[in-house]
Design a protein around this nucleic acid. Sequence first.
DNA 1: TTCCTACATGCGTAATTACGTATTTAGTCT
DNA 2: AGACTAAATACGTAATTACGCATGTAGGAA
Lengths: 119, 119
Amino acid sequence: MREMVKAFKALSDETRLRMLNVLMERECCVCEVMQALEISQARASRNLRALYDAGFLKLRHDGLWSLYSIDKEGLKEYSVDMIEAVRKALEGNETALLDRQRLKSAERMGPSCARRPSA
Amino acid sequence: MREMVKAFKALSDETRLRMLNVLMERECCVCEVMQALEISQARASRNLRALYDAGFLKLRHDGLWSLYSIDKEGLKEYSVDMIEAVRKALEGNETALLDRQRLKSAERMGPSCARRPSA
DNA sequence: TTCCTACATGCGTAATTACGTATTTAGTCT
DNA sequence: AGACTAAATACGTAATTACGCATGTAGGAA
C-alpha cells in the first residue's frame, strides 16, 4: 500500500515522466538526462533516485557513472489492469478490509445515511 | 501530459486508494464513503472530487445525493501498458520531443559528458 | 416558508514536495 | 599525493497539498 502510494507519487511529476520518456530511448547516466531535459544536476539526480526508489528504474554503476535504465518489470506491475492492481495493493491491508466491512454492515444497519437511493 | 500528472497525483494518496477500494464494491454516496473510511465529510467530498476530476470516477446525482462509482474506462486508460501510456502521453508534447532530440544529438556532439561508458 | 439533510467549498494551518546553491563523496587520472 | 569529474546530499526556501472547521448551497419534507 505505502509502496503503491510511493509509486504513483513518483509518476505524478512532469520532470520524472520526461525522464522515463528519455530513458525509453536507452540507458543514461545522470548528466545525460540532465542535459536532455536541461535541468540542474541536483534535480536530475534526485528525481532519478525517486523513480529508482519507486521501483521503475534499474541502476548500475560503471566507475564514476550511475547508469539508470527502465525496469520494465517495475512498470508492468501497475500495467495489466489498474483496477486489479489497486485491489491487490489493498487486499492484505487491514484498514482497507475494515473499510469494506463497514460499507457492508452499513447496508444492514441503516445508519444515518440509510435512506440512500437504491443503486 | 498535464492530464497524466493529475491522474497519477490523484492515485498517490492513501485516502483515495482506499476510496477506490470501497467503490469497487458498489456505487456509493459521499456519506457512505465517509463512514466506511471513518473520515470527515469534507475530506470525503474533496477526495472523491479529486478522483472524479482525474477521470477515475463517474458521478450521478439523485436528488440530494451525489453518487460516485468507478469509471472502468478511466482506470483502464493507464492499464494496458504503462510504458506505452507514458510514451503516448508525451509523444505529442513539444518539450518531450526536444528532450529526446537533445539526447540523440548528444551522441554525436560529445559534450562535457562525452566520455560516457558505452551502453 | 422553515427546517433538515447531503454535499460542496472558503479559509487558515500544518505537512509535504520540489528545487537551487553549496558542499561532500567517490572514482579516475597524472 | 593532488586535481578533475560524476553523482549524491545537506540546507534553506517557495510552492503545493491535505485537512479541520465553519459556512454556503440546494433538494426534499412539513
